[in-house]
Amino acid sequence: MKKYSIIIVSLILIIFAWVRCSKDYPVDEDGLLITTRAQCYVSNFELLGADFQTVRTTAAVIDTTALTINAVVFYGTDLKNLYPQFSLVTDAKLDPKITGKVDFSDLANPKKYTVISGNRIVKKTYTVYITVQPKL
């Protein structure tokens, strides 16, 4: 009887070890799931001011071929303290990450953001062009 018990316990331990060591779903360096999706684009773009209200005068124009985003903001917008918001295709992620206020005041050197697809293979860099509403 004792011999059989040892065998059973050993088998259980082996099964546990096997399950524990089997390969999990792959994740990237941010702990995000790597999927099979290869799509890579920005679907929507928002720009909020320090008061968390939109500063756009119209919807941002996103060109997924030219990889550009064009947004016109209100006259007098404080370009140094803006919160950009990107909506991306499923499973994609953005680089660099947006962690707080972003300074868009250097209009001659527009900000660039790279969208990385769900499979982490396709990368597309978008350029964000901001235009301040002109005074007539």
Partner: peptide, 20 residues
């Protein structure tokens, strides 16, 4: 009330640009 832009009611510091 400036045509073409939304200026409306504003608070500006005396040292702000004359534009504002």
């Amino acid at each position: 009330a400036i045509t073409g832009i939304t200026f409306n009611h504003a608070l500006a510091s005396p040292g702000a640009s004359a534009e504002y």
